[in-house]
Simulated assay, not measured.
Amino acid sequence: MLTAAPLIPLDDVPARLRGAALAIGNFDGMHRGHHALFAASRNEADARGIPALMLTFEPHPRTVLRPGEPLFRLTPLDAKARLAGAFGLDGVVVAKFDTEFANVSAEEFVADVLVKRLGITAVVVGHDFQFGHDRLGSPAFLASAGERHGFTTTVVGAVTDAFGAPYSASRIRSLLEEGDIALANDELGYRWFVVGAVQHGDKRGRELGYPTANIRLAADCGLALGIYAVTLTRADGTVLPGVASYGRRPTFDNGAVILEAHVFDFAGDLYGETVAVTFHAFLRGEERFTSIDALIAQMDLDSLAARAILAAAGPGSDVDLRLAGSSDVAEGETIA
């Protein structure tokens, strides 16, 4: 079973994690473009016998700097912790991002955050990394500061797809908003998932012969409304196949958007349990049916389609295997 990396407030970093190799970024999506940073920080850590950490910011800086613009968060903190564990990182350091933090200069960020609070040995950033007030800090600035403060700087170049385009969280958001799960998952390098606690619903699914585990996602979730082939991973690592609706239930109340996952051939109790729902394929958009019988008939077809897709899906990428806690990935194998 995968062990998620611990989430560590910046002001409460334990002594055993000081002196780390540190990857820095917003890391929304933790997509293929970020994987090289995590691998580089892990490699630096292993070579030096030190921890490997990532530093991220919460809330996402854009929500503070541009509060009027909604942002579809691809990887909230709980998802980042799971992914960081899959990448072999020893922890996720979380810096509270507010207007005061936004006004910290690049030099202050280095001296206070990297040196004083974290005591880093090495830092890893992307080629386009910018930091500090007015984004005046750059990889070159960081490398120069490292020479003065005694840490090394690794700058990772752009990671591009087969067409030469850099991987992008914005593009992945657009794909998910369009329901293009297959391409979004390919760009992420793993199957996109959400994490949440199973809540009690109105039990309507049970009455239809399709009991569901109901999870309310963040209001900023921009996933296309519709029906998906999914797997649900329990806290103990058990993976259950199913079909899910993300939508407003237009046949009934057209209410608040909710994720309703029906697990195949399962009669247990999931209420209150925190689970991960992984999206394998988009089946169809949300529809309003003229009768309950028509809805059930379509649900039967959706279930058959989801079962077929999941049966043929295979284990996924190395990252998916790590997320599943699989022993099929060799110890020390590079995650790509």
Rank of each mutant, 00 (worst) to 15 (best):
G91M: 03
A106N: 04
V110F: 12
L136F: 12
A84Y: 06
L71G: 00
V113T: 06
F109E: 03
N103K: 08
A145K: 13
G132T: 06
L118V: 04
K80P: 01
A106T: 06
Y167M: 11
D98S: 03
A145M: 14
V94N: 01
R117M: 06
V125I: 10
A162Y: 11
R117A: 03
S144V: 14
T75Y: 12
N103A: 11
E100A: 09
F141L: 10
V94C: 00
A122V: 10
V123I: 13
P70N: 13
A122T: 15
A86V: 08
G88H: 09
T99E: 12
P70S: 15
L142H: 11
A86Y: 08
F101C: 01
T75D: 04
F101L: 01
Q130E: 05
D134Y: 09
E100F: 08
F97M: 00
A145I: 12
V156G: 03
N103V: 04
A102F: 05
L74R: 10
G146Y: 11
P139S: 10
A95D: 01
A111P: 00
L142K: 12
G119S: 04
G137L: 15
D98G: 01
V110S: 07
A140F: 12
V93M: 02
T154V: 14
V159D: 01
A81M: 12
D90N: 06
G150I: 09
A122H: 15
P76K: 10
G88I: 06
A84R: 01
S105K: 08
F101N: 00
F109W: 14
V93K: 02
A95P: 00
H149F: 15
S144G: 14
V124T: 13
L83F: 07
T153K: 09
R73D: 00
D90E: 07
H149T: 02
R117Q: 06
F72M: 10
